[in-house]
Design a protein around this nucleic acid. Structure first.
Lengths: 198, 198
DNA sequence: ATAAATGGTTGACACTGTCTACCTTTCCCG
DNA sequence: CGGGAAAGGTAGACAGTGTCAACCATTTAT
């Protein structure tokens, strides 16, 4: 076997890239350290020089995916009207979930590596929630922190729940109209608006 | 090995029971045909006489879990006031999710076996959704079917989303108040009430 | 009575994560 | 310098998984 076709430091990066590619193509259940190594043309043990276990690789992949998610949310079209801005955020959230279903499911649909063991992963997760928190904070300035958090949870739950439900393969079998599916998000955002109205 | 300690027909039942037990104890990722066989003291191939593949075992387990879920929802305290009744349903839904987190995650949190290949599984799933649909149907009698479905989706998404989020191990790390966590469902149900008010 | 179907058995294969041991290359320090 | 340690790659082994194939006993049907 050729001694070392890949410059040393880059193997870690390359592993993460391949892992992301595999997840995007086939889903997280197809991810395995050996498959990553195979695709990179290195031995099945090489990745272990950079990740203590397959969970550590996964944690790093999750961390990056959270970051991409946050960046996607931050790149949404902004509006000075707080209600409009929250709506725009909901749409951005939703679009990410639909455009990258397998990555989204990685964040919210499959058991993550133990959070306590992977603080960097959780730091990125917190950042994403922070964005939602802020957007809702602008909605009604003088609200108590507690109610603010409760409303943030409410909005998050609805949008996440919808994204999660619409991705269930089971859904086709439940017999909902196509129109209903297409309107589901706007309708939910409308309901949220009504629920949060003063 | 003793020839056949288990009466023939019962092995299928016993497999499903063991699978449910494993999932309830350790979660669906620990479920394996071989582990089921081991616990039952039969050879690793015995279950294959009753299930074509591990997915078929899983599908049967999922089907039963859906049924238990529906039965749990139907056993909720009823109210003649439609708004109250919907609330009661939300609470029952939520309680199931919190009391049987691993079973709930089986239904809504992990990829299911291909729905097209397991119609009996989906029939049970549909029944559960039907219950929600009905409860909302009583809410405002003369609504268009389309809006009714949209509202059903909205309510489902919120309650499911909340249950799903509150179970994320990640949650501890996000730094929400205990009070907020305890109040999350009542608050969400209150918001839903406001959103659906005429 | 004999043939078929049913429900069990063992053995094998390919795949997974992970442990251990080994071999190179690089780099730092006495 | 020169030599040892550390980094980063290798191969081999082991236990675990799902699943295929072959085989065997019992029950059932023709």
């Amino acid at each position: 076997m050729p001694p070392r076709p890949h410059p040393a430091r880059d193997l870690r990066e390359a592993c993460v890239d391949q892992a992301l590619a595999i997840i995007g193509d086939v889903g997280v259940e197809a991810l395995s350290i050996r498959e990553v190594a195979r695709r990179l043309g290195v031995s099945h043990q090489a990745p272990y020089k950079h990740f203590a276990s397959s969970d550590h690789l996964l944690a790093e992949v999750v961390r990056r995916t959270y970051r991409q998610f946050s960046e996607h949310l931050e790149a949404r079209p902004r509006s000075s009207h707080p209600g409009e801005d929250l709506k725009s955020m909901g749409e951005a959230y939703f679009r990410f979930a639909l455009d990258h279903p397998l990555h989204y499911r990685l964040l919210f649909g499959t058991p993550l590596p133990d959070p306590a063991a992977h603080p960097e992963m959780m730091a990125e997760a917190r950042r994403a929630f922070q964005l939602l928190h802020e957007a809702i904070g602008h909605l009604k300035p003088p609200a108590a922190e507690e109610e603010l958090q409760l409303d943030a949870l409410f909005v998050w739950a609805t949008v996440h729940g919808l994204a999660s439900i619409l991705q269930t393969a089971a859904l086709d079998q439940i017999g909902l109209d196509k129109v209903v599916l297409a309107e589901a998000l706007p309708h939910a955002l409308h309901r949220i608006g009504k629920a949060l109205a003063p």
